[in-house]
């Protein structure tokens, strides 16, 4: 069959491109590095370990008490404090009833509840919206313990997770965190835990790095005298969190959205 030069070149070019892409693709598949994302959907309920928290706000009476929890967390994780709301990063913070549970109150809420400060953090949801939307699986629900983790190396900083989180739990590094005033003093740094880089999202990680050494999360330890925060395995019927849930009336934030938070609140009574 006769073929002119142009057709020949075209065929050679397309074959090279196709062969290159096809070959590279096959190599990746063989190495197993091409993963499809199903990180959030594979966990069965009661599969072994599902970490959860019950926060008893009746025991968080004074600002010092919850400030201790916040400081413990932010110090352990080198969370930067830039001193302005625009660049703010927070993993755990206080807010009042009306703003912690919008829509749950009314005009006649008891004053003691209205004035109470609630500790808010990532709810480590069972069906996290943030995990569903992440295009790179930089955030994912870990199968071994249910923590919604962040992989700062993979995050491209698209902030879709921040748009998706109904609880405002996530913060973005709008600038280099090491420029923050509080991190200039070496005494304030925890050298065992890395800082993050500009351009990635971060949030509470249930102190995964402390859990791996057999320690409790920093906020739990900070209030262990009052046991305001109880932490443990939901899948273990004998755990303290299950005991709290059995014996108290507990609520979640925005339960109607179906994300099924694993952080519960005891608010009164």
């Amino acid at each position: 069959m006769s073929m002119d030069r142009r057709d020949f070149l075209r065929i050679i070019g397309l074959s090279t491109v196709a062969g290159g892409i096809g070959g590279a693709g096959l190599l990746e598949l063989r190495k197993g590095t091409a993963e499809a994302g199903s990180a959030a959907h594979g966990r069965k309920k009661g599969s072994g370990t599902t970490l959860a928290m019950v926060i008893d706000v009746r025991k968080l009476e004074s600002p010092d008490q919850y400030k201790r929890c916040i400081d413990a967390c932010h110090k352990a994780h080198n969370v930067p404090d830039f001193g302005n709301p625009k660049d703010e990063i927070k993993w755990i913070w206080p807010d009042d009833f009306e703003h912690s549970f919008p829509g749950a109150g009314h005009e006649y809420v008891a004053e003691e509840v209205e004035k109470k400060q609630f500790l808010l953090l990532c709810n480590q949801c069972e069906k996290p919206a943030c995990v569903r939307v992440c295009p790179t699986q930089a955030t994912f629900k870990r199968a071994s313990d249910g923590i919604v983790m962040m992989d700062y190396h993979r995050c491209i900083g698209c902030r879709f997770c921040m748009a998706a989180c109904p609880f405002g739990a996530r913060s973005f590094n709008w600038r280099d965190p090491r420029g923050a005033a509080n991190l200039q003093n070496p005494a304030n740094l925890n050298p065992k835990f890395p800082t993050r880089m500009k351009g990635v999202v971060e949030k509470c990680n249930f102190c995964a790095e402390r859990l791996r050494e057999g320690l409790e999360p920093a906020c739990v330890e900070a209030c262990k005298d009052t046991k305001a925060i109880v932490f443990g395995n939901l899948d273990d019927p004998k755990s303290e969190v299950r005991e709290m849930l059995r014996t108290h009336y507990t609520i979640q934030r925005k339960p109607e959205l179906g994300t099924n938070p694993r952080v519960f609140y005891v608010i009164g009574g």
Binding site: Y152, R178, L183, Q184, P186, P191, P194, T195, M197
Partner: peptide
């Protein structure tokens, strides 16, 4: 490598 943007270089815990 940009490891040191986040991870602390030894004895460089600081900036």
């Amino acid at each position: 490598p940009y490891c040191w943007d986040c991870h602390f270089g030894p004895k460089e815990a600081g900036v």
